[in-house]
Design a protein around this nucleic acid. Structure first.
Lengths: 146, 146
DNA sequence: TTGAGTGCAAAAGCTTTGCATTCGT
DNA sequence: ACGAATGCAAAGCTTTTGCACTCAA
């Protein structure tokens, strides 16, 4: 996320307004590495804005996401997807049609984790997900909604 | 997923019964690399079992998941999580308390994609997710539900 | 026979939407 | 002043649950 001043400018440039609620959301997100949910942000805001609604939080986050100012840590598979192949492999997701293809490559030696983190965590598994566009979707204008 | 015969045995060994519906689900999943959703499986089954219910599909898939016979391609973050840090980095998720920590490592040169896939897709992004347990959770018996 | 599974409908949980009111510019 | 944002409540969707009935073993 950009610095708040820049963010404010980006919003205004788009004709979006800066409200106290939005500003408060910006501040909560600034230098925040706790990967909060909308609910958590909402909770935090309640102190200063007892009347704020979850809907407002979601709406603002949606704008930030569209602007590329926050990243969603949950992939827009519309719903749960099940993979009967439990051998170690990874996936490439077409962000256009949501097709998922398997990638059978062993990355286990390629992915070094900082030793500081290794000390704190016991890592049991990992997954790599690639995102892109298949040929068909590359030639489309519009992708699936959502 | 194991071969169907083995799967049947695993189910019976656990006191779980083999019903036509379950068998049909097994068959749909066998050698299936389309990463289907419960809905899609349900849809497929409708032909042969017009009365089958989505609930049955979900329930069977849950068992398969618990048995490690299928893998879920959607992470159990309980809800959306937002990351204001859009610089390229990756995540480690503690499967006990769901804490998410950042991993700042550049894996872009480490992750080779089969050329056959590179021909078919334009890859725009990727993410690496590690799973494990933090020290606290390692010493716990029970983790967060779900 | 009997405990497990099915299928229906209802509930649950997260997220989005509609709308009247309020507010930023 | 006027379009945008807010906050509430309702709706939407996916997934789960409860329960009477049915069925596999």
């Amino acid at each position: 996320m950009e610095k708040i001043n820049k963010l404010i400018k980006s919003f205004r440039d788009k004709g979006l307004k800066i409200t106290p609620q939005r500003l408060a959301i910006f501040k909560i997100l600034e230098n925040n590495n706790s990967h909060p949910s909308a609910e958590q942000i909402y909770h935090n805001l309640k102190r200063g804005y007892p009347t704020i609604s979850l809907a407002t939080v979601y709406k603002t986050l949606e704008i930030l996401e569209e602007m590329g100012e926050v990243k969603l840590l949950k992939i827009n598979y519309d719903r749960k997807r099940y993979d009967p192949d439990c051998s170690p492999h990874h996936h490439l997701i077409c962000v256009g049609c949501r097709k998922i293809v398997d990638i059978f490559e062993d990355y286990s030696n390629a992915l070094k984790v900082p030793s500081q983190i290794k000390d704190e965590f016991t890592i049991t598994d990992f997954r790599v997900e690639f995102f892109g566009l298949c040929k068909k979707c590359k030639n489309k204008r519009k992708f699936k909604e959502k």
